[in-house]
């Protein structure tokens, strides 16, 4: 399988921006490309089983590209293709995303049990490996820390339909032991299922440890 961005252009507030842009959306990065264009003709290809690090300065459009690849934003021109076809507009999207700010990407009015099982039912073993305690399922999002919430955000996107995973600074808010636990688990799951990963990180050592290829935006 192959996920591609072909000659993608995007600007906020312009044609092509879908209202509501998905969780964590809505910020306007500094223009990195032509006037007003956050992304101006960006192409990227990820094969199944590959783990690609996307690096670049703050405001250059990394998170925007991530949301476009996951289908949360539509490009003004260009295309996102999964094995040559556009992303499905309904049903489970094979491209799933884990966001930088977990507190902004869960429904504050849902308890964590409902957040976790929105699209599939993760088994007990996965929850244990992610360090999610049974007792947390009864809590509300505001009653968990960012690191704890992020474990739920990872568990909920590892459904059997997921082929590609976009990870936008997912371990920035985690302590290093949890970061190593979560990445060791993600790497194993990615390996087992042949997932393709796009990893946005500012940490050079992490990119080198986790990824097979590094792309500069």
């Amino acid at each position: 399988m192959r996920l591609e961005a072909q000659d993608v252009r995007f600007r906020y507030g312009g044609a092509g921006a879908r209202p509501g842009g998905g969780p964590g959306g809505g910020s306007v990065p500094e223009a990195g490309a032509g006037p007003g264009w956050v992304l101006d003709g960006v192409s990227l290809r990820i094969e199944a089983g590959e783990r690609v690090a996307l690096v670049g300065p703050s405001g250059c459009g990394k998170s925007t590209l991530a949301k476009i690849l996951a289908g949360y934003l539509a490009p003004a021109s260009g295309a996102v293709l999964l094995d040559g076809a556009p992303l499905p507009r309904r049903g489970y999207c094979p491209v799933q995303m884990v966001f930088q700010h977990p507190e902004l990407s869960v429904n504050p009015r849902w308890n964590m049990g409902r957040v976790l099982t929105e699209s599939w039912a993760p088994d007990e073993a996965l929850l244990r490996e992610l360090g999610i305690e049974r007792e947390w399922l009864r809590r509300w999002p505001i009653e968990l820390s960012g690191g704890e919430l992020q474990r739920f955000c990872i568990a909920r996107v590892l459904g059997p339909g997921t082929r590609f995973l976009i990870c936008d600074e997912i371990s920035t808010m985690l302590d290093v032991i949890t970061q190593a636990q979560i990445w060791q688990l993600l790497l194993r799951v990615a390996e087992e299922r042949g997932l393709g990963l796009l990893v946005i990180t500012h940490s050079q050592p992490l990119a080198e440890k986790v990824c097979t290829r590094i792309v500069n935006l």
Partner: peptide, 20 residues
């Protein structure tokens, strides 16, 4: 354990999690 888990070191986590 913290030092061992750093990506620039061994990137090896100890199991378990901090008590709540």
């Amino acid at each position: 354990a913290f030092s061992d888990a750093l990506p620039q070191n061994r990137f090896l986590p100890i199991p378990g999690s901090q008590p709540y």
